[in-house]
Design a protein around this nucleic acid. Structure first.
Length: 417
RNA sequence: GGAAGGGUGCCGGAGUGGUUAACGGAACGGUUUGCUAAACCGUGGCCGAGUUUUUCGGCCCGUGGGUUCGAAUCCCACCCCUUCCGCCA
């Protein structure tokens, strides 16, 4: 959620920044208007209530005088009316507020869509093959480590069975991420994968189009999470942390559920875009002054892991138009896929500033005793997407996969044949 | 799923219709002090108005409704916690 006071004081600034994200800025004007009405109505209502309180006091001290009771009855009626109007405005105002995304940082690269993302660096050598590299799914199906055909019959499209070394690779990646994180004080967590609507909304993950992306179970009025981030961020719901505890870091493992609405026809083949996958995620709570530094730190951890896997990747800084709803700055890591001759996104790394913390009421106490909202960050440690990347980049002429050294150690063999 | 009990501030905990949330503890700030301790004083959150470093007002006792001139207190619904029973990886 955006800061209402910031919105009131800097409507033009907010409009400017949000337009970079492609938001319809009429919403901001609408907010200003509705908020003005809301404030007037609030003042009127509070005035009446103040009179009512005074009247109530007189009744109690004067021993139930008729005249005060009569006056109180009139006040009560007016208050009821005004309260109705106020509630409507309140709802309207909140409705606008939850449909405004976080503002990007001033210096975030501007652009409309992913084509305008800024490449920060390319790392690693793209593999050179003396044969035509095959698609990961061909290889994986042949080796019996991914089965989407049976999954389609059993569960539908965009599902997959991971089997044999497919499973071992996933477990190894999770273990690698965990071992890299623990020395930096990350607390490992396996969080719930279901979340209540009101919590989901207040971390900004049910806003507008995002709602379509969520699985909802009507009978229980509960959502399935799209990432462990969604139940990790509320870990400090309503809490004030001590400055000395920050940065507070977590590494979560969970299954993630996504409807992939609106991505019809995109990556329909294989397991790059599925309804259900596992992901290890980094989360940080920081002082506002430290969030940019923490952001770079999380990115460096992600890169360290990718380098250990010897995968060729590039880091892009997402332009304003391609940034996530909650993000003020976002980086993606994209890995080279030889069969597609393209970099494909496998990681993201986001600084959401105080946007989610405000909704959660997560604050920290500064050394001079003031309370301020923390900043929150989230970054992929590993999802399942690097597995297809590994299969493609380390394939051999005869259809086997020759594993990078670190994975060979974890799995106990250096080739999937 | 059934039964019973419960949810009050950072914590414990009183409060069963009449403004101001008793009392105790913790933490923080201040005074005092050679230092420490003690003692004493002060300190909740959100929101609105404004003469915007001082002030006035509203709201907050799990959540949302209701009754009433007035609700932590009475009524209804829901959520959560504890214990017991049932079921269960």
């Amino acid at each position: 959620m955006l800061d209402v006071n910031f919105l009131r004081e800097n409507p033009d600034k907010v409009k400017e920044l949000l337009s970079r994200k492609g938001v319809d800025i009429k919403l901001v004007d609408k907010f200003t208007r509705v908020d003005g009405e809301w404030r007037q109505k609030t003042a009127a209502l509070e005035q009446l209530k103040s009179e009512q309180n005074a009247c109530t006091q007189s009744i109690s001290s004067a021993g139930g005088k008729e005249e005060f009771i009569a006056k109180a009855q009139i006040l009560k009626k007016r208050i009821l009316e005004i309260t109705e109007e106020h509630k409507l405005l309140d709802k309207k105002r909140d409705g606008i507020l939850v449909n405004l995304p976080n503002v990007p940082f001033e210096d975030a690269p501007r652009g409309k869509d992913e084509l305008e993302n800024k490449t920060v660096r390319e790392v690693g050598e793209k593999p050179v093959f003396d044969f035509e590299p095959r698609d990961y799914l061909d290889i994986a199906e042949n080796l019996g480590i991914i089965d989407v055909k049976t999954a389609a019959k059993v569960s539908g499209s965009r599902f997959g069975y991971f089997m044999k070394e497919g499973v071992l690779m996933e477990m190894a990646l999770s273990k690698m991420a965990l071992e890299a994180a623990l020395p930096h004080g990350f607390i490992p967590v396996i969080p719930p994968v279901m979340i209540r609507p009101e919590i989901y909304e207040s971390i900004g993950r049910l806003a507008s189009d995002q709602k379509e992306e969520r699985y909802y179970m009507e009978k229980d009025d509960i959502y399935l999470v799209g990432s462990s981030e969604h139940t990790l961020i509320p870990l400090h719901l309503g809490q004030t942390l001590d400055e000395s505890e920050l940065p507070k870091r977590y590494i979560g493992f969970s299954t993630c559920f996504r409807r992939e609405a609106g991505s019809y026809g995109k990556d329909t083949r294989g397991v790059l875009r599925v309804h259900q996958f596992n992901k290890v995620e980094f989360i940080s709570f920081t002082r506002p002054d430290d969030s940019e530094r923490e952001h770079r730190f999380l990115l460096s951890l992600q890169e360290e892991l990718m380098q250990k896997l010897e995968l060729p990747y590039r880091v892009v800084e997402n332009c304003t138009g391609d940034m996530g709803w909650t993000d003020a700055r976002q980086f993606d890591i994209e890995v080279w896929f030889p069969s597609q001759k393209k970099y494909r996104e496998t990681h993201s790394c986001s600084n959401t500033t105080d946007f989610q913390a405000r909704g959660m009421g997560t604050k920290y106490k500064t050394r001079d005793g003031k309370k301020e909202f923390v900043h929150t960050l989230n970054a992929t440690a590993f999802s399942q997407r690097p597995i297809p990347a590994l299969i493609e980049n380390f394939q051999t002429k005869n259809g086997t996969v020759k594993l990078p050294k670190i994975l060979a150690e974890y799995i106990g063999k250096d080739e999937i044949a």
